[in-house]
Design a protein around this nucleic acid. Structure first.
Lengths: 329, 329
DNA sequence: TTGAAAGCGCTACCAC
DNA sequence: GTGGTAGCGCTTTCAA
């Protein structure tokens, strides 16, 4: 920067101002400076700037996984909302592990982000402590934690599944099965299973018929394998709910391979409203939980807190969801 | 850090050393320091450390998009390889736009990454200049640029499509159609189309039958719409190649809806070997280009260049691909 | 509108 | 194994 200043015949301070949008610098001084910048191929060093201004321009976001999951939509919502704000997203993958989350939180906080967006409300004690100590806004998403750290953008995963069971029961189905992952670490998956079980109990239907298969996020292939297990153990199952659309799709395709008609022989429903469910044949019933909006709303709330407009106001933003009944049920 | 040093009764320098893995600090001094760190809830400030050590610990990677695309696999390969190296990934989405890429490169370089991974070889002049000026290792991926900036990890998109056409021609298909996106900005998509056309010419088959539909990455729905156009204009088409598996899947499902048999009435092939293609019914013929490996190899090469082992040695790493013929052809 | 001085929080370097 | 000093490249603050 000193080189640029010298070439333009000004002080570094003036260069610094010229490089910001708001800087009060005369038109022609700025022009001279920008020419010098261009000639030298100078690129501002933000790490130095951050240290001095005590604003890093970072925002951290932690998701369980990005591949084949709804969280990629949420991440996109965050990214799009941050675009143009000058904030850079630091993205981390927890792989559904609280320990890995803790480790990521620590390394993210070393970068001094101005805010952080988390998935879910299950964190290690140490992680909670670091977050509180950091004194930056924290947004938890995708569920409703019992003890939120700060603000929340989410919905009740159990209520969603309960609604789906009821919607299908209203169509006459009585013998329900559920396909989910094996891990207890996927708290959202667990809540969905609980919602399923509660609905079965409320409706006084036959319990049981739970197949756990694969580590979240469970794949198409695992959905296919799970439906085979399901039909071996309980051949008279009438409707199967899956923890996600991908497993539902795997189950559907496996049925087609085995000439099991969907929905005549068995109904299949998923979760997440992936594009695949809307265009496969038959189309899969599912739930749209507004993944993209969760990201957008979380980022917007974070921006407001960072701006100081709503600092410290812990808000619970409930996001809407919609059960979509389609040809597969 | 001064607070920690005071509490532990040492200098800040010793605290700094204790907080690195390699620091030469006595067992008990380190213990005392870590206790002080814990008591005060101190978290190291890496932006200050970066400024001083002139190592930011950042690596930048730019991909066209993450949602429903092979690039999410590549990003995962990069992330996994970087894990445990202490390097933090800065991820950016160019949306297939060279201008947006240029803008992202500029903002990434302000963070002083120690290396950068790009998708493709088409960059604006200004972007190329910034990259060269930055003097950090640059890895271009997913294609073979005519004028690489530095090292490359990729394959020939046109050769892949040519091979696919030939594999299908060997099975007896003669009247080929191609479904791709409308944008000229997706250079990989363009190269695939060129490979398709070249193969048709080499085999002396009937030309034409190109449907362009939608902005990349083209969706399942757009694949469905495209096959409808294709069959309206050229009802006797025998085999359709799609720019990606998602569009192939959309085309396949649309055929099922219209009771057009695949592959008896028409054969369909995709690109990318998405999980969906291996498990839908019928399974879709496609090409596996090792998306995950591209990410892994690019990150590994970058790490070697950053370590200085291979600094400045511009390498071309050709990644293998494999045509997979399945039930849909 | 511009400049000078001070210092952000850490680590490189060298001394002990 | 440990500490003192200097300084990374910028922005804040205050003065002109």
């Amino acid at each position: 920067m000193a080189d640029v200043a010298r070439l333009a015949g000004v002080s570094t301070m003036t260069v610094s101002r010229a490089l910001k949008k708001d800087g009060h610098v005369s038109r022609e001084t700025r022009k001279r400076i920008l020419e010098a910048v261009d000639e030298l191929g100078y690129v501002l060093d933000q790490s130095a700037g951050s240290l001095s201004s005590r604003k890093t321009g970072f925002v951290a976001a932690l998701v369980p996984s990005l591949n084949n999951s709804n969280f990629s939509e949420t991440a996109r919502g965050i990214t799009e909302t941050l675009e143009g704000t000058g904030l850079q997203l630091l993205l981390g993958y927890t792989d559904y592990s609280p320990d890995k989350e803790e480790q990521l939180i620590q390394s993210m906080l070393q970068r001094r982000p101005e805010g952080i967006i988390l998935t879910g409300g299950a964190h290690t004690l140490s992680a909670r402590r670091m977050l509180v100590n950091s004194a930056i806004p924290v947004i938890e998403t995708w569920e409703i934690p019992e003890e939120p750290i700060d603000s929340v953008v989410g919905f009740s995963n159990s209520a969603v599944m309960r609604d789906m069971v009821k919607a299908l029961a209203a169509k006459g189905y009585r013998k329900f099965g559920y396909i989910g992952g094996t891990s207890t670490r996927d708290t959202r998956g667990n809540m969905r299973k609980i919602g399923f079980l509660n609905a079965i109990k409320e409706l006084d239907l036959e319990p049981g018929r739970l197949i756990s298969f694969g580590v979240p996020p469970i794949s198409i292939e695992q959905g296919a394998q799970a439906i085979v297990s399901m039909l071996e153990r309980w051949p008279d199952t009438e409707a199967v709910l899956c923890v996600s659309d991908l497993s539902a799709f795997g189950a559907l395709m496996e049925c087609q391979r085995r000439n099991i008609r969907v929905p005549e022989d068995i109904a299949i429903a998923g979760f997440g409203d992936y594009e695949i469910s809307a265009f496969c044949h038959p189309r899969i019933s599912t739930v749209n939980v507004g993944c993209h909006d969760i990201g957008r709303l979380a980022a917007e709330k974070l921006l407001r807190e960072i701006a100081g407009d709503e600092a410290g106001n812990d808000e619970l933003i409930l996001t809407p969801y919609k059960v979509l009944l389609r040809e597969s049920t």
